[in-house]
Design a protein around this nucleic acid. Structure first.
Lengths: 220, 220
DNA sequence: CGGGATCCGTTACGATACTG
DNA sequence: CAGTATCGTAACGGATCCCG
């Protein structure tokens, strides 16, 4: 593990940046907020970060107690956020709100996987949810599955297949960004940019309520 | 201006980091949240960042529309946040909350100036203030003056001298950090770690209420 | 094939010195 | 005071190779 370049200031902002301020570090945490991931999941999601850098960052994050390294299914290794690591969610969401204010540059490219939506859409739902919402949704974003569980006034979005989703919503990442950044509204999104299958009739209304409230979080 | 190592990803978090993710950039913004500053103010507050790096960062922040460069008093140059730049306050405050969770390492040093308190304490007051608070406070932190104006349900803390402060509170930066990170409580702080002069009797009570509420923001 | 380690050219950082 | 110029060093990025 490299890293000697630290601010070493008493200021709490500098102390935070000494942990998560390095290049790539916040994007690694971003992807891990979608749930445990393997080395190569992360490498793809970060559009080809150099392997040695990913190794360095994972080691440093582990040493600082923000992530943990566990044994996965078939002899694989899984990286997960610790409780301390999960506390970065608010920072990442604020960054997403801020970054959404800038129009994308010319040469930007979509990330190698869609795990970023778990932080942006998931956190927005978490902040917008009310106690009367109870719905389990299977999202499919650019072909990748995510499951949103919203109940008891709490919402969590993770990568993976739902077991018994009330609603299945399929859309592109670009369309999702358009609606979150206010370029199209929720009705347009649902009508023209998403494929929605309803397994539990009525639940699609709850989802639309939740998503509308979530979208409103972005513009306040 | 040096060329930038940019992620060029569509993800809004990456777009934010392309603007403010470089080393030193967030600390420069931190200091500017205390009000306009000269080149050398910033250089001192950042404990001796290399001058060429500070130049690079200021140029990039200007090009991205986060700060502006204006003529100051005696032929000096002043850097200030633009409206877009001020939107980073929430990010910086979240970083401060997160960084406060880690105990300082052995060799940490106090920053070269105290402008960091304008983000941490000022934002906490902003989030905690209620409509019944109306007080102007002269803070003196490690000998540096800051003025907090709290009225109409809003609070703003800036570097500089107050014109007619209701209360003057003098304390060390270390003591302020101790209370914000929960090591001592507000009563202990006021009694043992601060020198308080009251110009408008009764206003010190309002200040204590505001600060207690602000401190509570740190631990939720 | 997943999970790295090692090597090496390139780029940014950091310190010092110097200038308008 | 507000930068510019130079230069050694450390980190990044890409590629290749290794090992279970």
């Amino acid at each position: 593990m490299a890293k000697v370049r630290s601010y070493k200031l008493l200021c709490p902002i500098a102390r935070a940046l000494d942990r998560i301020g390095d290049r790539w570090t916040l994007l690694i945490l971003r992807d891990l907020h979608a749930g445990p991931a393997r080395f190569s999941d992360l490498q793809h999601g970060l559009t080809g970060i150099a392997a040695n850098l990913l190794t360095d960052r994972l080691n440093k994050l582990t040493a600082d107690g923000l992530i943990s390294k566990d044994a996965g299914a078939h002899g694989t290794t899984l990286y997960s956020l610790t409780e301390m690591g999960r506390k970065t969610r608010g920072i990442l969401f604020d960054l997403a709100l801020f970054g959404g204010l800038f129009s994308p540059e010319a040469e930007v490219v979509e990330p190698g996987n869609m795990r970023t939506v778990a932080v942006t859409l998931g956190t927005a739902c978490q902040r917008a949810i009310t106690a009367d919402i109870n719905v389990e949704v299977q999202f499919v974003i650019n072909g990748e599955p995510f499951v949103l569980v919203a109940r008891d006034g709490r919402a969590l979005m993770q990568a993976g297949q739902a077991t018994a989703p009330d609603v299945v919503l399929e859309a592109s990442y670009a369309a999702l960004l358009s609606v979150s950044e206010g370029e199209i509204n929720m009705a347009q999104f649902a009508r023209d940019h998403a494929r929605i299958a309803v397994n539990t009739p009525g639940k699609e209304v709850e989802l639309m309520h939740l998503m509308s409230a979530a979208i409103a979080v972005f513009s306040r």
